[in-house]
Design a protein around this nucleic acid. Structure first.
Lengths: 212, 212
DNA sequence: TTTACATTCAAACAAACGTTTGATACGCTT
DNA sequence: AAGCGTATCAAACGTTTGTTTGAATGTAAA
C-alpha cells in the first residue's frame, strides 16, 4: 500500500522537509509560513498537517542532529593533538554554519532558535547543544590542563562558540557593512583559522596566568 | 494647546515607548504585538498608530542610540592605556546587553535585530553599529599596532563582539543548561573580565605572531 | 471490477494580526 | 458658555496565520 522508498507519499514528505529546512533557516520558525513551505514543495497547504500534524511537528522532524554528531565523532577519531582537533572542530562548525553548499541546514536552523525559544528548543538543547558542550568541554580540558577551574573553562567554551555563531547571527549586518564580502570556502577557512589562533592564545592566557 | 512636558499626551507617548522597548527586547519585532504593548502601557490599541503612525514607526522611535554613543565618548575621555580602555568597553557593553537594572533596552533590541532584518535595521547599522565598529577598530589598532593587517584587525573585532553578543543571543539556551545562573552585576563583571583577558591574549597572538 | 484505504486538493475555518473609523471626552482659547 | 482641536475609546476592517473539512483522486488488495 505504501512505504516503499521512492513512493509518491515519501516523495511529498521529503519535499516538504527540504522546503521546510530552507524556509526555517531563512526566516526562522515564526517568520516561516506553512504556505510558503508548501509552495516550494509544490504541495497542498494541508499537506503539512496531514504528514506532520502541525507546523511544530514539521520543525521537529526537519531538525537533524546527525551531521553535528558525526562531526564530533570524526573529530574524536581523527586523533592528534587537542589543539589541532580544536582547529578542526572550528573549521567544520563554521562550514556547517556558513557554507551554502553544505547541506546541513538544521545547524543553521538551530542557530536561529538559540535566541528565540520555540517548542523545539528543549529538544535541541537536550539532544544537540548539551552533547556539543560536553564534547567541547572535554577537548578544552585537554588543552587547558587540569588546574583550570570549571567556570573559566566554560567561559573559554562560550568565547569560542560566540565567535563562531557571531558570523551567522550578524550576517545581515555584516553584509550591509561589507557588501562585497562572500562566504566561500576559502574565506570560511580563513575565519576559522583566525578563531582558532585567537582562541588558543586566549585559553593559554586563562589557563596559565602569567604575573605581570 | 499641547506639547508641554508632562502633559497627558506626552505621558501616553512615554508609556508606549517604555512598554514597546520592553516587549520588543523580549519578543523581537515580529514576536511583539501592538496589543500587548498597549496593554502594558494601559493605552488603547489605536494609540500606537495615532502617535507613531505604525508599528514600524514605534520601533524607530523606541530605538535610542544615545547610551551607546555616550559610552563610547566616556571611554575615549577616560584615557589610559588602550588595553585598559578595551577592558572598560567590554564591561560597559556587557552591562548594556545583560544587566536588568540597566535601562538601556534599545541595545538589547538592536542585538535581537542583528539576525532578523526589520525595516529599522538599515538605520541601526548606519547610526549605531557602523560608528561602534569604527570606535572599536581604532581602539584595537592602538593595541595591535600598525603592522597588523586590516582584515586581521577586523576579525579580532568580530571575535570580541561575538563573545559579548553570545551571552545575549544564547541566553535562552544557557538558562536551560545552567538554571541556577543569574546575571547580576558581579557575574557580568566576571564574564567581561574573562572576555577582556581572553581577547587581549588573542590580539597579541594575531598581531605579534611568534614562530613556534 | 469492486472494495478499502491512503493521499491530495480546493475551500473554508477560527483566531490573531496591524490598522482604520466614527463617536466621545478632554483642555484650551474666545 | 460656546467653539475648536487633540486625545482616547470601543468597535470593526481587511489580511494573514495555522488548521480543518469533505470531496476527489490514486493505488493496491480482494
Amino acid at each position: 500500500m505504501m512505504h516503499e522508498a521512492g513512493t509518491a507519499t515519501e516523495q511529498t514528505r521529503a519535499r516538504l522537509l527540504d522546503a521546510a529546512r530552507e524556509v526555517f533557516s531563512q526566516h526562522g520558525f515564526q517568520g516561516a509560513t506553512v504556505r510558503e513551505i508548501c509552495r516550494r514543495a509544490e504541495a497542498n497547504v494541508a499537506a503539512v498537517n496531514y504528514h506532520f500534524g502541525s507546523k511544530d511537528g514539521l520543525l521537529a522532524e526537519a531538525l537533524n542532529f546527525a551531521p553535528l554528531k558525526a562531526m564530533q565523532l570524526a573529530n574524536i577519531e581523527a586523533g592528534g593533538a587537542p589543539e589541532m582537533r580544536l582547529c578542526l572542530f572550528i573549521r567544520d562548525f563554521m562550514l556547517m554554519l556558513l557554507d551554502e553548499t553544505n547541506g546541513s541546514l538544521p545547524c543553521r536552523i538551530m542557530a536561529r532558535e538559540l535566541a528565540d525559544p520555540t517548542p523545539a528548543l528543549d529538544k535541541i538543547v537536550r539532544e544537540a547543544i548539551a552533547p556539543l558542550h560536553e564534547f567541547l568541554g572535554e577537548l578544552l580540558r585537554e588543552i587547558a590542563g587540569e588546574k583550570t577551574g570549571e567556570a573559566e573553562l566554560r567561559r573559554c567554551m562560550h568565547s569560542i562558540l560566540g565567535q563562531c555563531l557571531y558570523y551567522r547571527h550578524s550576517h545581515p549586518v555584516l553584509q550591509r557593512l561589507h557588501p562585497r564580502l562572500r562566504y566561500d570556502q576559502k574565506e570560511i577557512a580563513a575565519i576559522a583559522l583566525h578563531i582558532a589562533d585567537f582562541s588558543l592564545a586566549g585559553i593559554n592566557a586563562i589557563s596559565k596566568p602569567t604575573a605581570k
